[in-house]
Simulated assay, not measured.
Amino acid sequence: MKYYLFILLYLFWNSFIYVFNGSIWMYIFCFGLFSATVIWGSFDIQLKYFINSITQKRTKIKEIALTFDDGPTEFTPKFLDLLKEKNIKATFFCIGKRIEKYPKIFQRIIAEGHSIGNHTYSHSNNTGFLSSSKMIEEIEKCDEVISKIGNIKTNFYRPPFGVTNPNIAKAIKKTQKKSIGWNVRSLDTVIDNEKKIYNRITKNLNKGSIILLHDTSEKTYNVLVELLLFLEREKYSTFTMDSMINSTNND
């Protein structure tokens, strides 16, 4: 994806130079193009513009990953009940503050065999504007909570909102994390209609997809009920980030 972006920008650049060579508009265009590229790269984790995030598994079989952000919450037990009923393992990217609020739910996630990822301690709305040292603090503080309450360590990190930039890339490298993105974004925190969320997920699904969901609402739980039925009908299996990395290391 990143290389396609560069090719597209290269073509635009050459076309503009041909038309406006030597004009002030050329310099304005250059600045605008650069700014747009940086912003696009910051907010679209699939572009891998600042950090080489894992956004999909290379596989020839029908398998997908269910990932849940922003928990644990009061809704998480219902998600866990459903996953247990279907014998499905998922990956939960947890916020440190919420682990502290719901320690027993967090311990249950681990006890039932799901993978755990770091989703920062506070999930600040200002994530994209934090210094590298502050981002390192956010990641390390979440690690401390995960270790204290769950007695585990995780190498996985998912940037809040999928935002990346040089400071965040530096923090990820410093803390030796693997950045995990997605290639199917449900937008379940934005879209209210459950059917629209379900359709958005299923129409974009393919082999090796990593699906972004949130264990934060009844709405998403209802979507998950229908999604698991769809996966069963279409004969999709599931994988976790742990199993994906382990299989890659064993290849």
Rank of each mutant, 00 (worst) to 15 (best):
S42G: 04
V223L: 02
K86S: 00
P103C: 06
K57T: 00
I245S: 13
E232A: 10
N87M: 13
K235S: 14
E63M: 10
N151P: 03
V19L: 14
L130D: 09
Y4S: 15
F6S: 13
K203T: 03
K97G: 02
T202M: 04
K101V: 11
G150N: 04
E144M: 12
F93W: 01
G96I: 14
F43W: 05
V223S: 03
F20S: 09
D192L: 12
T127D: 12
K84T: 13
E100I: 11
A111L: 08
R158K: 05
E144V: 13
F239V: 08
C30P: 06
N249L: 11
Q56L: 05
T154R: 00
E218T: 15
V190P: 08
V163D: 08
L5P: 09
N183S: 04
Y236P: 07
Y10E: 11
G41Y: 06
K84E: 05
N21R: 14
C142K: 11
F16G: 14
I39G: 02
F129Y: 15
N193C: 07
L82D: 05
A90H: 02
D251Y: 15
D251W: 15
F6Q: 08
W13E: 13
K173N: 10
P166Y: 01
K173I: 06
N125A: 10
Q46Y: 03
K177G: 07
F230M: 02
I88Q: 07
F161G: 01
F29N: 07
F31V: 15
T59S: 00
K134A: 13
F43D: 03
F239Y: 14
I54C: 04
L205H: 00
I191L: 12
H119M: 03
Y198C: 00
S53K: 04
N151G: 12
H119K: 04
T216S: 15
M1A: 15
E85T: 15
K177Q: 01
R185P: 04
N204I: 00
I210R: 13
S131N: 03
Y121K: 08
P72G: 09
N167L: 03
T240I: 06
K86R: 09
Y198H: 03
L33C: 06
P159L: 08
T37H: 00
F79C: 09
N126T: 11
A90L: 01
K196S: 13
